[in-house]
Write a protein that binds this DNA or RNA. Sequence first.
DNA 1: TAGATTGTTAATCGATTAACAATC
DNA 2: TAGATTGTTAATCGATTAACAATC
Lengths: 205, 205
Amino acid sequence: MNEKIIPDIVVGRLPLYLRALQYMLQEGRHVTSSQELGERLGVSAAQIRKDLSQFGEFGKQGTGYGIDSLINEIRQILNLTIDWDVAVVGVGDIGTAVTRYRGFANRGFRVTMIFDSDPAKIGAQVGEFTVQDSANLETVLRTANVQVAMIAVPASEAQQVALQLVSAGVKAILNYAPISLNVPPGICVQYIDPAIHLQRMTYYL
Amino acid sequence: MNEKIIPDIVVGRLPLYLRALQYMLQEGRHVTSSQELGERLGVSAAQIRKDLSQFGEFGKQGTGYGIDSLINEIRQILNLTIDWDVAVVGVGDIGTAVTRYRGFANRGFRVTMIFDSDPAKIGAQVGEFTVQDSANLETVLRTANVQVAMIAVPASEAQQVALQLVSAGVKAILNYAPISLNVPPGICVQYIDPAIHLQRMTYYL
DNA sequence: TAGATTGTTAATCGATTAACAATC
DNA sequence: TAGATTGTTAATCGATTAACAATC
């Protein structure tokens, strides 16, 4: 009764706002406006104000938004106040790249375990991690209470891995395999497929 | 006057349809329906029919769509009948992973050149390519008439690289750096930032 | 033919924008 | 105070869905 339903498209823009705000902070800025933020991101000022107003009143008339405080508000909204442990499944080029990726720091995530089913890879070292056997995935994830995972296995294995992750208690999956996953209701899935992004642009060329 | 304007959101779904159709073909299937395709992708049958009808009549009442012919239609629409040469800028973990990525085969793209500004990397071999000096980027891209590029450099360099690419004649940019790019009108940009995708899901956890 | 599925229309639904009173 | 910018409303715009005649 007190729970307003927030459109998913609004939720999806918050991370973009957050990223831009963190940049501004890094630049030593302390306040910004919906107009400035909108120009950076290519969205309208009205949209930013409307989006934020879904969650509260974070600005000051005449002044704008305090960057630091708005960052904290958005972090709270998105449940990013503490880092989420992330499991990576599949230690090919992509799995390796995301495991070593520096870009998660300060953004709410840290990879804490990696898995592969290839005996030649199990036991190997990637960054600070030892590749674990996918066969133990469910037990290990459950024990560590990991709720976020990335799939970086071949497309042919992705669906099966997804179901394993779900039964291990994972609730959010970022899938790098170029295939649509079927998961039970309540499980979030996001996709990264560079070919899809490129194909979307060639229409206009 | 004869050019219907197609909503970008429709264009954005075509690659998903194409990917699913190519999978079906691989499974030995020959026909499908808007309903079946919709179930696979989690979109409504009506939406698929509506989207496709923007471009022509590709189905048969009572039967559905010929998978092979629909694939060819979508390829034509998206300008994917011949492979696009793609330049990769930045040869870190991500740049290396996309350069070696097998997933572009049969989907309209092939990486043909890679660049980095780090003297320690220039001249090195990645897959079948030799890392070229970013300083020569504009000349090399112009000569080869490359119109598609991926940015995989640190965020601090991404904007500058983007402008270099634009002045080299690149029209479509896939940006892996976690920052919004400002480019002139007419230049397409797409973004891949795993943290953004993850942050979008944690709201629901 | 009977059954199935398209292409398309009209209705519904949701998102964006413009505008402005409130107020810092 | 005067200027600036928010939060919010109402109007506009666009996208999705339901429904069905057409037809394979």
